[in-house]
Amino acid sequence: QQQYTFRMATIAPKTAVYNTDISDPFAAHVARLTDGKVKVEVFEGGVLAPIFKIYEAVEDGRADIAVGPPTFLGGQDPTNLIISSFPSGLGVDSLIPWLYLGGGQQMLTQHRREKMKMHSLILGAGPSEIFAHSHKAIRTVEDLKGVKFRTLGNWAAILKDGFGAAPVVVPGSELYGMLEKKGIDAMEYSMPSENKALGYQEVARYIIMPGIHAGAWSFEVVMKMEKWDALPKDIQDKIAVAAKLTTYESLHSIVMKDFAALEELMKGKNEIIILDDTFKNKVKDASRKWAFEAAAKAKTEGNPWPERVAKSVFDFQDRWAKLSPYMVMDHRFNFQ
């Protein structure tokens, strides 16, 4: 019986949830399901490749597989900015259904094979981030005007063009200090559990939720297509099952961590602001406008993918919203 050992590139330190709740459990599931035939060696971010270059590492052969967010591939092909997480995109409830039943994983796999000669599986998902830690109370979109808001990528573009905010580029390690000293007015970073560990609540009064700029997110695991295709069918199936299991588990295990963090946060002296529907709808309009403009531009350049993915996400989201009233949800809209 042939044995396989795969070096896996990841994007974060060993202790971050991206490894404790996604990469490590995946490696364990793969080993268990294949009776130890497949061994996944998890390497922390930066060991096999700079963290933003994990896809390149797979392409060059430094890593056999890589786990990370498609957003790391950037805006050259806007597909990557829309498919795993998107401002005003899918929520914690609708993300996994779209990925596995709404065509998400299918499109992702097809896109990777066609455009990157890689095989991809959804691996890992997570809940909403915190919208902002802020010195200014942001309740309406008008409050965003002129706010020095630390963020990255397409959300920076939407905030700037749609709402007149002043996006600031600050590296993660300097965020705390810049927020503390009011060098920036507001910032987004990650989920409640991560943000709380980094202590942003200590230095800015307002904590603004929910994180509609990243309502829910998913990661993928990629491998060179020829390498994947050479694997026996039963091994492929077992790896796919391990990935899917990890996705379901990670979303909820991270929620549990966030709950623990939120309970602590609410005991503190911060003021929590919950964004209302007017705010959410205006952001949704601006975000979709951005997506369709980017998709239209890509289409004229001969890339139909962004439009296809955007349409799929937004249709699924609208359908979910329309039909979900029949469901009993334990969700509430504020902390009272």
């Binding site: 790391f72 050259q76 580029v169």
Partner: peptide, 19 residues
Amino acid sequence: SKAMRAYVRRELETMSAWE
């Protein structure tokens, strides 16, 4: 060869608002 590939593919700096 990385520089060459980046030139041919017109690669952008991905994790940046400026790209």
